[in-house]
């Protein structure tokens, strides 16, 4: 396996999630979640089906559990497909996110981040498939700016958009299997990851690549802040695999993992932003935030990155033959 380090001090968490819009999203999400029936039960791990899942935290009345075997985190709640469909496609939250103003702001805030992401994807595709143009599927996309940028990437021969959220329109007219399937921040909203990954695997040619990113449950900020993690909330975040958990999920669904890394830039920023919400008995983290300075925070973030301990995860996997 590989580990990865990349520090870009020009990217700030506040730029990715501007306070005003992000707060508005959370208010609507919370209202939607409040209508759901709460069970309080702890479900089995969605990857390994372990019954030993433990309560990690409760947020807005819903339970997040952590698996002691895969260290993955998941929302412990049976979610009907129509609940998710409403949340992501027709609710007020979905309408806000589909609005022109919201999409324009996201494009403006994230274009550098996306450009770097596409450069990374191009490098991985060149490394594992060769320097060429490929049939690419973007699965579950939700940003106009991202789709536009991806369609112009040098490695794309044709781009098929599938399982998209509003305002993105699916254009999966051709049934040809993909050389590359992009799954950008989609895993985290999967209700049944094994079944959903099996469906996705069937859209990729044997030998083709899956390129995925998502939030990772056992990342430093999430395990530190738990319910005070502002960036983690239902139903945007249903499934937060660990690197080990994701490897297991991919193995189960017909992939060979080529690399899983956690190049997250924001763990320390998230914790600093919520410094007053760090649980009282987390003395190390409180000490760190109270006494540390910028260079120390940067070194710790680099340490988290290169040791796969950050809460943003990305992976490249190869679809196996005959699975």
């Amino acid at each position: 396996m590989i580990r990865y380090e990349y520090m870009d001090e020009s990217i700030r968490e506040q730029d990715i999630h501007p306070d005003t819009v992000f707060e508005q999203e959370q208010v609507i999400a919370r209202a939607l979640v409040s209508k759901l029936e709460k069970t309080g039960k702890i479900a089995n791990c969605p990857i390994c089906n372990s019954q030993r899942n433990e309560l990690l935290f409760k947020k807005w009345g819903l339970t997040y559990a952590i698996c002691p075997q895969t260290w993955s985190v998941a929302l412990s709640m049976p979610l009907e497909p129509d609940v998710l469909s409403e949340y992501f496609k027709t609710s007020d939250l979905a309408k806000l996110r589909a609005s022109r103003a919201y999409q324009d702001q996201v494009t403006h805030n994230r274009k550098e981040l996306w450009a770097h992401q596409i450069e990374w994807m191009a490098a991985r595709i060149c490394r594992y498939l060769g320097n060429d143009r490929y049939q690419v599927v973007d699965w579950g996309g939700k940003f106009i700016g991202w789709e536009a940028m991806l369609s112009n990437a040098g490695f794309v021969a044709t781009l098929s958009v599938e399982a998209a959220l509003p305002p993105i329109i699916n254009n999966a007219e051709q049934n040809e299997l993909a050389d590359v399937l992009c799954l950008i921040d989609v895993l985290q909203r999967m209700r049944e990851p094994v079944a959903e990954m099996q469906t996705i695997a069937e859209r990729i040619k044997p030998g083709g690549l899956l390129i995925a990113t998502c939030r990772s449950g056992p990342g430093f900020d999430i395990l530190t802040l738990r319910e005070a993690s502002e960036s983690i909330f239902p139903l945007d975040h249903i499934f937060l695999p660990s690197p080990q958990g994701l490897a297991k999920l991919l193995h189960k669904t017909g992939f060979e993992v080529l690399e899983i890394t956690t190049p997250g830039q924001f763990d320390m920023q998230y914790i600093r932003n919520s410094r007053h919400a760090i649980p009282h008995d987390q003395y190390f983290q409180r000490y760190l935030i109270e006494q540390g300075d910028e260079p120390l925070f940067e070194r710790i973030q680099a340490f988290l990155q290169r040791n796969n301990l950050s809460s943003h995860l990305r992976c490249v996997a190869k679809r196996l033959e005959g699975r």
């Binding site: 396996m1 590989i2 380090e5 990349y6 870009d8």
Partner: peptide, 10 residues
């Protein structure tokens, strides 16, 4: 410049 580093364990 902003550098990327990959560590190989195998």
């Amino acid at each position: 410049p902003r550098e990327e580093i990959i560590y190989f364990d195998r």
